[in-house]
Amino acid sequence: MTTMRKSALVLAALGVCLSFSACASLGSKGKDGATTSANATVPEEESKIDFGNLFGGKKASKSSNAEQAGIGVNAYLWRASLDTISFMPLTSADPWGGVIITDWYANPQTPDEHFKVTIFILDSRLRADALNVAVQKEVRSGDRWVTADVSQQTQLDIENAILSRARELRLSDVKN
């Protein structure tokens, strides 16, 4: 698919979304759960639109735990990620997009270096390949911070800690 065609699809979808959001304030929910407007009554299930196939994505399964929890990614990976990096200040956490970004964190024992972590949860299933961790490191050089290399092992250790915690959370839910 060409870039121009993809851009046209994105613009068309954006236009549709804007149209629906503009119309959303006109409708209201009736006591039967239907969305009503001046012209029509539409059952709530029919008023939901799946844009996944428009962009070449797969249709989401309605039975996944993550969707039932109200987030767009695996709930165990999400909670485990937050638990694992709880000592770091958060800059952003998007449970629908599956992105967690921390602010810079300096270990008090090594104040001349600090780290920033970005976690991507890529799937609604609890799988090792549904998780990607990116770590940035900076070291102090005089009065400024300079980017430094982070070992691949550091990123793998964080991923493994998150996956272990996610398995613990899942097992505790199964037992209860």
Rank of each mutant, 00 (worst) to 15 (best):
T2R: 14
M4K: 09
S7H: 13
S7F: 11
L9D: 07
V10W: 12
L14R: 14
L14C: 06
V16P: 08
S19D: 08
S19E: 02
S21D: 04
A22V: 15
C23H: 03
L26I: 05
S28F: 08
K29Q: 10
A34Y: 01
T35G: 03
A38F: 05
N39P: 01
A40V: 13
V42E: 15
P43H: 12
P43S: 15
K48I: 15
D50H: 09
D50G: 04
K58E: 14
A60P: 03
S61K: 09
S64H: 06
N65L: 15
E67V: 06
Q68R: 12
G70S: 03
G72Y: 01
Y76M: 09
L77W: 03
F87E: 15
M88I: 03
T91Q: 08
T91N: 14
S92H: 13
D94L: 11
P95M: 02
P95Q: 04
G97Q: 10
G97E: 13
V99G: 03
W104M: 02
W104V: 12
W104H: 00
Y105D: 02
N107A: 11
N107E: 10
N107H: 14
P108L: 03
P108G: 03
T110H: 13
P111I: 10
P111C: 04
D112A: 07
D112I: 12
H114A: 09
H114K: 14
K116D: 04
V117F: 00
T118A: 02
I119N: 06
F120A: 05
L122R: 15
D123M: 06
L126M: 14
L131D: 00
V133M: 10
V133F: 00
A134G: 03
V135H: 03
E138K: 12
R140E: 14
R140G: 05
S141P: 03
G142H: 01
D143E: 13
R144D: 14
R144M: 07
V146I: 14
V146T: 15
D149Q: 12
V150T: 10
S151R: 02
S151E: 09
Q152R: 15
T154I: 13
T154P: 00
I162S: 00
L163P: 05
S164L: 06
R165P: 09
L169P: 02
L171P: 00
D173G: 04
D173Q: 12
